[in-house]
Design a binder for these strands. Sequence first.
DNA 1: GACATATTGTCAATTAAGATGACAAAATAC
DNA 2: GTATTTTGTCATCTTAATTGACAATATGTC
Lengths: 393, 393
Amino acid sequence: MKNEEVELINCKDVLRCVENLEQPSRADIAKHLGLSRTTSSYNINKLMELALVKECESSLSKRGRPGKPIVLNDEKWYALGVCFANSSLYFTVVDLNGMIIDKKSVKIEPLTFDKFYKVLTKNLKYFLDKYPDNILPAIGVGSPGVIDPKTGTIVKAVDLGWYNIPLKQLLKEEFNLPIFINNRYRTMGLAEAKQGLGKGYDNLIFIGIGSGFGTAFFLDGKLVLSTNIHTGGIGHIVVDPHGPYCRCGKQGCLYTLGSLAVLEETAKTLLNLPHEKSFLDDKNDISMVNIMNAANKGDSLARECVIKVADPLCVVIEDLINIINPERIIIGGPMGIYGEFYCNYVSNKIADYYNTTDISIVQTQIDYFGGAVGAAYQVLENKLELVLNKEID
Amino acid sequence: MKNEEVELINCKDVLRCVENLEQPSRADIAKHLGLSRTTSSYNINKLMELALVKECESSLSKRGRPGKPIVLNDEKWYALGVCFANSSLYFTVVDLNGMIIDKKSVKIEPLTFDKFYKVLTKNLKYFLDKYPDNILPAIGVGSPGVIDPKTGTIVKAVDLGWYNIPLKQLLKEEFNLPIFINNRYRTMGLAEAKQGLGKGYDNLIFIGIGSGFGTAFFLDGKLVLSTNIHTGGIGHIVVDPHGPYCRCGKQGCLYTLGSLAVLEETAKTLLNLPHEKSFLDDKNDISMVNIMNAANKGDSLARECVIKVADPLCVVIEDLINIINPERIIIGGPMGIYGEFYCNYVSNKIADYYNTTDISIVQTQIDYFGGAVGAAYQVLENKLELVLNKEID
DNA sequence: GACATATTGTCAATTAAGATGACAAAATAC
DNA sequence: GTATTTTGTCATCTTAATTGACAATATGTC
């Protein structure tokens, strides 16, 4: 290992300490890493020069000279992240703590790749120009579909009809900056893992549910990149071998029984049959959001629809628990965001079989902008190298 | 990072080069790691003094002074591994290449923990005494049941009636050596990943099938420790929600439909009904091994039995493919070892739905001693620290 | 309030490991 | 036979972590 690398590693370790410990002093960090106070101090001073950390006022003090508490510097550097979801591009600018400084969403109409790319680049330029001295020189992206994070290619996004689009390369040529791309449910999961309901869990699954199903696995504390790249993901796990045929070639997979489309169709069918009075009777638009909201308020017809799509999800979640044994599963994406009753139902049903101290199932806390925050976290994870102008991929 | 650590890391990187490259010279290693030839040489010489590597005769040569090829030294250090399977303890002594130098198996009768522990310690002592100057100061163990590798506890081994046994601590006190413990299917998987059919695959699943089901996941090139520690593993994935009740509380899980016991019961049932002539008619003992062998030879009644337990396995394997997306799945453990037809049937059935260039399903190549070889690999992975007398756990 | 004790952050000097450049050794190319 | 290429090693240099000393600054105790 080169000396240069060693210094980078030490610096990174020190930076991680600042992130993970509670306002540590130089001495605390030295103790935590087994380094000398001198080395800790040397690296902290270097990080201060780079404006990645700063000293703040000491609060409580014990016997002895009080150490100066070090925290992430939230005044100089920001990270730019963008995520495509809900037919819109969501842009966020976050500080080093992942707190949103600026944000914007833009509807893509008509929904073509050309329009998407035009809005994407135009707004990225807008934010890069708006904070010329502050934005870390990189862009984080969350995209729908099957993404290969190494090459930065959208391998396929079936619903959009996009295949083999080298988005990373396109953006790299456009902006001459390092680009970090991952599936949008991976970036949403990253946001939850870093600052949301996944914080502190070493073994975590984030399930994103919208028109399709996506997952982010965190095992032994790290986001697993290899899973679910090329195959159908959990959406094509068979729940009922006698169920409806799917375009994947099998019958009764989760996609055919538990998707957003099934929820909406079920509601329409039930509303056309004789039924009790329902909130949904008044609505012109029988959308997922309306059904979820009605179910949350206690509407029995809506709840019947939600349960119909939640039961197949429970089967797949049980498979996930048996195979992966996560400590927590977070249900996110559009159905998770609006599905308070949906998530509670799944959580309670799983609690019938599994001990809730071993596994908790919770509703996501982040909205559509969360995917963009997670995309920005991909940049934040490389902040030191970016500020030092190291080569990244 | 302490200077000491840096040296260890460099030394380890160099050692890994010797393992992974084809007889590299000092210069090859320097090039591969981006180090200077001086540093590469320094570390190789250090490793030679520790008797972990050695020079061998150069074979092919290009223009210029030929480098001296470096290989693992298979003459000085051995690793001791033991695995409990098939009511027996399997002991192996392997060299640094993982080649078996010495082996022994002992049947445990009666099958109690006291007897197990007595035979275990007695034979470990035997091998430690037999190679007093050669055995790396550590012991690798593969055990049935749910194992927590961090604490080294057998959390539960239901079939044996063992609960919360601190095996690592017991052996540590007995031998005063570092102990590495993992589930036996994890150690079998490790052997396959290191030297068998899993070599070269970054994303790999080993499924061990005997009285129960166990798995070892290798993701992004590393054995995942967190999965399947506390829950039922793939054995309790529901295949048919209307199937037989299981002690896990659910109906139709893999354990109730695809286990060794189901195979044997199915054979007994079919043999009592009117049937074509079968090899099994002559046997007094309708055991898994006999059924598998008959099926391998083409016996139709035996094949019917095998297919009955293979079909549920296929369902679970499809789940695994959808969730994990491995490049290869290796079927091992007793049913895998004897199940040539069984494995081929599963492989062919999966090939109907998935592209065989994306995913291959193969029969294990290692026998019962493989679990002990894998257990020894746990020691080999720490050989440098062990020889340097570094603290391990 | 005075003094002892504890802890922090920094400095100069020391130590250690990787890099550099030179050079002899040992092969092939022409 | 000579030029060319590549290897492994040596002395020297560079760099970053450590050590030990010391001033600064807090609390605890009498």
